[in-house]
Simulated scan of single mutants.
Amino acid sequence: MDPLADAPALREALDGFVVHLRDERGLSAHSVRAYAGDAADLLAHASRRGARTPADLDLRLLRSWLAGLQARGLARTTLARRASAARALTAWCARRGLADADAGALLASPKPHRTLPGVLRQEQAGAVLDAAGERAQRAAGAHDPAAAALALRDRAVLELLYATGVRVGELCGLDLGDVDDARRLVRVVGKGDKERAVPLGVPALAALDAWRARGRPVLEGPRSGAALLLGRRGGRLDQRAAREVVHRAVRSVPGAPDLAPHGLRHSAATHLLEGGADLRTVQELLGHATLTTTQVYTHVTAERLRSTYARAHPRA
């Protein structure tokens, strides 16, 4: 049963909000689903409290919704995300004239605990990539073209993720034409369809060359299109398959933490800062909308400094 069946104006507002997120803000399908789910839950709560139009949403109602979620034991990060969705919804309603005021403008939410992202040490990252290169060499001598092609692809995936710090969705979305070999750049389409150019290191470009020359033609098929990276059946590489490539590769290195593709992104950013890159440059490379998001990596490097000090200094 539709919880908004008795409040068609709220249902209409929800549908309009989803269109706004998808078509005007250009959010990813995942983000749209998350915001839409949170907004639907809020409006269902409002409907149960007697609200019938967006104008009925007020700060007290929003707070009661968050209090109920908190009583159910939701994590602070989840509460913060839901409060953000509520603020986005009420702001949109106010802009559209569906409400006289933005009820969520004063809505506070618990600040999420910011956990430091897991990263590889530089020598661990090197070991992961070296092992991938060795697997590609072994596969090439095994006289199994498909296995050799997949090994070349896996090496390219790992090198690209670490060299560029791109998100796994950005990686899987790359096309052949996005690589500028002459300038060693790759064109990346990030969140909100924003484009950026990211440099490629020599090892990453070498892995990419090997994949394009000797791996991709083996897997290429009718479903390949212009996709740069392919799955074993010839279609565009799936994000789940890319994640498995990373997990499998990192697990092969003794002592390395089990990381997903985002862990390689964190590692790349951390190692750039440790190597002397400035925060603004790292922000541009990662495609962060604000510098605040990038600043978490300064916490990572500071944590490493303390850890190294504690191990190495005789009077730590």
Rank of each mutant, 00 (worst) to 15 (best):
D2V: 09
L4Y: 07
A5R: 15
A9C: 02
A9K: 03
R11E: 13
E12N: 07
E12I: 00
F17V: 04
F17A: 03
V18E: 13
V19T: 13
H20E: 10
H20Q: 11
R22Y: 05
A29G: 08
A34M: 03
A36G: 12
A36Q: 04
L43P: 12
A46P: 07
R49V: 05
G50H: 09
T53N: 04
L57R: 11
L57Q: 08
D58F: 06
L59W: 02
L61R: 08
S64F: 03
L66P: 06
Q70V: 11
G73W: 05
R76C: 10
T77P: 01
R82L: 05
S84R: 11
A86V: 11
R87N: 12
R87K: 14
T90W: 09
T90G: 08
L98H: 13
L98A: 15
A99G: 06
A103C: 05
A103T: 07
G104N: 12
A105Q: 12
L106F: 13
A108P: 02
S109R: 13
P110Q: 13
L116N: 06
L116G: 07
P117F: 13
L120Q: 06
Q122G: 15
E123G: 02
G126A: 15
V128N: 08
E134Q: 15
A136I: 01
Q137D: 15
R153Q: 03
R155V: 00
L160H: 02
L160S: 01
L160A: 00
L161D: 07
L161R: 05
L161C: 09
Y162S: 07
V166M: 15
R167Q: 10
D175E: 12
V179C: 03
R187M: 04
V189G: 00
V189H: 08
G192K: 05
R196H: 02
A204W: 04
A213M: 02
G215R: 01
L228T: 04
L229T: 04
R232A: 15
G234D: 07
R236P: 06
A241W: 03
A241Y: 02
V246C: 09
V246Q: 07
R248W: 03
R251Y: 00
P254R: 09
G255L: 02
G255C: 03
A256N: 08
H262I: 10
A269G: 13
L272E: 05
L273V: 03
G275A: 11
G276Y: 07
R280T: 13
V282G: 09
Q283S: 11
E284H: 08
G287R: 08
H288P: 11
T292H: 14
Q295R: 14
V296R: 02
R304T: 10
R304S: 10
R306A: 14
R311N: 10
